[in-house]
């Protein structure tokens, strides 16, 4: 076998390995006592940043949804996950969704619905724990989608300032 020339010749102590091995062992020993990075997930959770795109939710203002059922979100949704059915109401906004469903198995968390919404009525939340045991459970109706505006303050703030709507 041809002897290859190294870029830098090792000196004696490097070549007998022992010194280098002890150095390596001391390094790992140092790590043995260092604080750990692991997050104990189900007990400890990360507080997500406002830019985090969790599951989309409907903003609830004074006990009612802001949504006017224009259907833009449903139109823009690339995964065809949103279904809206509009109806009339006595309120100022005149229209409201009778039915608003997001199929969470189809949703790809792109945030287009939030971007397109003229009323800031649908935003992405910080909720990422979505587990279903049946297909039916994965279709979220208004009961699961409506979230009080107080809980979505920082996301709404983020949408206004960072996304320059």
């Amino acid at each position: 076998m041809a002897v290859k020339k190294r870029k830098k010749d090792l000196h004696f102590f490097e070549r007998i390995y022992l010194v280098e091995i002890i150095k390596g062992l001391l390094l790992t020993l140092k790590h043995l006592f260092k604080p750990k990075f692991t997050l104990q997930y189900p007990e400890e959770k990360i507080e997500q940043a406002p830019s985090y795109r969790g599951r989309p939710v409907l903003v609830m203002d004074n006990g009612k949804e802001r949504c006017v059922a224009c259907g833009l979100c449903s139109r823009v949704c690339p995964a065809l996950a949103i279904q809206v059915q509009a109806s009339e109401t006595e309120d100022e906004k005149e229209r409201y969704p009778v039915l608003f469903e997001i199929n969470m198995l189809r949703c790809i968390f792109c945030g287009f619905c939030e971007e397109v919404c003229p009323e800031e009525a649908i935003v992405m939340s910080k909720d990422y724990e979505l587990v279903f045991t049946r297909y039916d459970d994965a279709i979220f109706g208004k009961d699961k989608l409506l979230v009080p505006v107080e809980k979505l303050k920082d996301r709404l703030e983020f949408v206004r300032t960072q996304m320059r709507k």
């Binding site: 790992t28 043995l32 006592f33 604080p35 750990k36 990075f37 692991t38």
Partner: peptide, 13 residues
């Protein structure tokens, strides 16, 4: 456990 500690993890718990 020790392998976890050396790699800054917690290990089986």
């Amino acid at each position: 456990k020790i392998s976890a500690w050396i790699q800054d993890r917690i290990g089986p718990n």
